[in-house]
Amino acid sequence: MEAAVQIRRASAADAAVLLPLCVEHAAYERLDTSSEGSAHELARALGATALLHAWIAMLGDTAIGYASATLDFSTLDQATYLHMDCLFVRDAWRGHGIGRLLWNAVHAFAGERGCRNMQWQTPEWNIDAARFYRRLGAREMIKRRYVLALL
């Protein structure tokens, strides 16, 4: 089944395909979110200036997962790093290697861009994700994450 899954880079034209996955992911992580105006903002971020880099896992015409990332600079490391913002696979497709395929695509992109490392977070309660990331060789760093709404 994994062989039929295609991982491809997302473009601005994929905003309508990505939006339902993003909404489903937010619900999975128990986050409040609004999809109002979001397709336009996703398209803008994926556009020519490429603030956002994303990959979609497709099974035929059906999107079953995605990953997204941004490039950033660490003053502590004095180096560029990749921040993986999201890695999400729809429930029915978890455990089929789709997350690994998406992660491989993000990892390859980080290497192509000369990133010193990759960073990401997952909710404390998501022990399956934590186990998955440890199997990839990632080490856990305990930090607090803060969010301040501006709009």
Rank of each mutant, 00 (worst) to 15 (best):
Y81P: 08
H107E: 12
G47K: 06
H107Y: 15
A138L: 08
N104Y: 07
G97Q: 11
A13C: 04
R135L: 04
T122I: 03
D128R: 15
V106Y: 15
L136E: 03
E36P: 02
L76D: 10
R144I: 02
A39T: 11
L19F: 01
R94L: 02
H40I: 01
A129M: 04
K143Q: 04
S68Q: 09
A39N: 12
A4L: 09
Y66A: 14
A10H: 06
D14G: 11
L82W: 07
Q6R: 15
A63K: 09
Y81K: 04
A54D: 10
G111A: 01
W55V: 00
E140N: 08
A105N: 14
C86V: 14
L76C: 10
S38C: 06
D77H: 12
I127T: 14
G60V: 03
Q119Y: 07
Y66I: 05
Y28P: 11
A15N: 02
E124Q: 08
V17E: 11
A16F: 03
D85Q: 14
A63H: 07
D91T: 12
W93Q: 14
F132D: 05
A10L: 10
L42C: 05
C22Y: 10
I98Q: 04
C86R: 14
A48L: 12
V147E: 04
A149D: 11
L148K: 11
T122K: 01
Q78L: 12
L46E: 14
M84C: 09
W93E: 13
R145C: 01
G111M: 14
A54G: 13
A43G: 04
R94H: 03
L150M: 09
A57S: 09
M84Y: 07
L102I: 07
A48C: 02
M118F: 05
Q119F: 08
E41D: 14
M58G: 13
T70Y: 13
G99N: 13
S34L: 01
S34C: 05
D77K: 15
Q121W: 08
A15Q: 06
R30H: 15
A67L: 00
